[in-house]
């Protein structure tokens, strides 16, 4: 397991290094000079030069890349071109909205999908299975931001159970914060839950036909006992893959959902930064999102090793 984990760790570091280089190079292609943009068309050349020096834009690209990467490692993401405040502070404030939202949605998606998938698999071909599969087919086709708008219309505007937007913050307690994030999290979670439930069902159906399941039944275990003791663990590999992949969709999806609910998260920050050409913020937020995806996939790889020992020896 140690050798397997070290290999995955090496792969993680290489992926992060290459991803950071790609992001840096793409942003470098951007036309225009941030210092000139910030100071406007009437700025004097010496003022622009001074600002370039202050922002660290006057050093060679290689040095800038290394400064940026080493800064990120130590939590220093640079200074926002527009707000002149540390990018890490801006991101840190927004993370308290975006991260809980993605995790809340992931938890909801898993909580909905697991029972639905197990139920459909255990009722294969019957009405319950057909109903769950029909609902998931529809769930996969629904854009999450449209679903969010419908949730606002029903639960915020008509029933008034939730606010139509905004975030109450965490200062008034966990429940108040979670209440503000409930509609956004459900909107994010349901389409993902539909995909996960389908994978769970098909994975379980594949497993149920395996010899070891027949052996478990022959030993005297009931269908349900065999499913819970032997089936679920073995059906988890494809399910874990999808959960890992879904995290990236949830992070990206949360950027869109934040717009529907006017949440002050990373999405709002990145769109404001694009419109004000605050490229250092865009660069840092994108790197952070990619970092999250790569690290989650790394964790999924480690989980594979734990769930299926054969994978450890294969790599």
């Amino acid at each position: 397991m140690l050798r397997y984990s070290l290999k995955r760790l090496l792969s993680l570091i290489v992926s992060l290094a290459v991803a950071s280089l790609v992001i840096f190079l793409v942003i470098e292609v951007a036309p225009g000079d941030p210092a000139s943009f910030m100071l406007g068309i009437n700025a004097q050349p010496d003022t622009i030069a001074a600002l370039r020096a202050e922002l660290g834009l006057d050093v060679p690209k290689t040095e800038r890349y290394l400064n940026w990467v080493s800064g990120m490692v130590t939590g220093d993401f640079g200074i926002s071109y527009t707000y002149r405040t540390p990018v890490s502070t801006m991101i840190g404030d927004r993370m308290w909205v975006s991260l809980p939202l993605a995790l809340y949605a992931l938890a909801l998606s898993t909580l909905i999908a697991f029972p639905a998938g197990v139920y459909a698999a255990s009722r294969r071909g019957k009405a319950g299975d057909i109903a769950v599969m029909g609902a998931t087919q529809l769930g996969v086709a629904v854009p999450n931001f449209w679903f969010a708008m419908m949730m606002v219309l029903i639960f915020a505007i008509n029933l008034r159970w939730f606010g139509a937007g905004g975030f109450a913050g965490w200062d008034d307690g966990l429940l108040v914060g979670l209440h503000s994030l409930t509609l956004p999290a459900i909107s994010l979670a349901l389409p993902q839950a539909a995909i996960l439930a389908r994978v769970m069902r098909s994975s379980l159906l594949d497993i149920m036909g395996e010899d070891f399941m027949r052996t478990a039944r022959a030993k005297g275990l009931s269908r349900r006992q065999a499913l819970w003791r032997h089936g679920l663990r073995n059906a988890m590999i494809p399910v874990l893959t999808i959960i890992g992949l879904q995290f990236s969709f949830l992070i990206a999806g949360s950027i869109i959902i934040e717009k529907v609910f006017f949440l002050p998260g990373l999405g709002q920050l990145v769109f404001q930064s694009i419109s004000s050409r605050d490229l250092i913020v865009v660069e840092s937020v994108v790197m952070l999102l990619v970092f999250a995806v790569i690290v989650v996939n790394f964790c999924v790889d480690l989980a594979y090793g734990a769930v299926d020992p054969r994978l450890r020896s294969r790599t």
């Binding site: 792969s11 290489v14 992926s15 290459v18 991803a19 790609v22 992001i23 793409v26 942003i27 292609v29 951007a30 036309p31 992949l245 990236s248 969709f249 992070i251 990206a252 999806g253 950027i255 869109i256 990145v270 930064s273 694009i274 050409r277 490229l279 865009v282 937020v285 994108v286 999102l289 990619v290 995806v293 790569i294 996939n297």
Partner: peptide, 22 residues
């Protein structure tokens, strides 16, 4: 395959954000 893994780390919205920013 490793390049594939790398591109998978960039959801299409993130790629769009990068391209739009530039």
């Amino acid at each position: 395959m490793r390049s594939n893994d790398l591109v998978f780390a960039f959801p299409s919205l993130v790629i769009a954000i990068l391209i739009t920013a530039v």
